[in-house]
Design a protein around this nucleic acid. Structure first.
Lengths: 112, 112
DNA sequence: CAGCATCCGGATGGATACTG
DNA sequence: CAGTATCCATCCGGATGCTG
């Protein structure tokens, strides 16, 4: 359920405050309208997010975390912290790994 | 990084003990050899998982968590707990949601 | 046993145009 | 503003066959 590209970005945002459709599009880099709606519907479906339509013109819709959604966010916070803390390590590990792969590739490519 | 279909299933398994390729295939329902290798390589790439090749015949390869991987698992445990605890709620929420969708659909379909 | 290479259908997701 | 609908290229991932 959270093993999806955008859910882990949406939920922490909603933990701060209610967010509107266009705000998401601005705040989450790279998400398309389609994927945003799809993910929000999914989260709504599981009762994690509540969609509030003020039925005004022009439309005003906001999304909030439900109590269950909030309880999920609580266990997600440590992951954010972990990610922030370990990001540099992950990056260098990745670069090292890729460098190793490259050198092996060149061995296979130029066996002379 | 963990927003991928199999990573969240692989890591907790490795937290228990080292696991071999075929064990994964047996223990993780639905994973294919291709996806398993792909995910393991990815985790290895970030330095979360270590691949140990005993260089025997027949081959014996095992995967372990690195210290960083272990620290990640630590923050993942609460998610597992959360999931187990809230699964019933999520399920009924989902069913309710789907039922609501259905009734709305029938309104749109037969407007007489 | 571990895992790579290839093929291939179906799902995914972006772009665009449109609606209330 | 908040979406839906459609089109369509891309990618994902399963199945199969093969290798050391």
């Amino acid at each position: 359920m959270i093993s999806t590209k955008w859910a882990l970005l949406i939920i922490p945002l909603l933990a701060e405050r209610p967010v509107r459709n266009n705000e998401f599009l601005r705040l989450i880099d790279g998400v398309s309208q389609k994927m945003l709606t799809q993910t929000l519907r999914e989260l709504e479906r599981y009762g994690l997010v509540e969609r509030i339509d003020y039925r005004t013109v022009p439309p005003h819709v906001e999304y909030r975390l439900t109590p269950i959604g909030r309880s999920l966010n609580l266990v997600l916070v440590p992951i954010d912290d972990w990610a922030e803390k370990n990001f540099p390590k992950l990056l260098t590990a990745q670069q090292d790994f890729d460098r190793r792969q490259e050198s092996e590739a060149s061995v296979r490519t130029k066996p002379l």
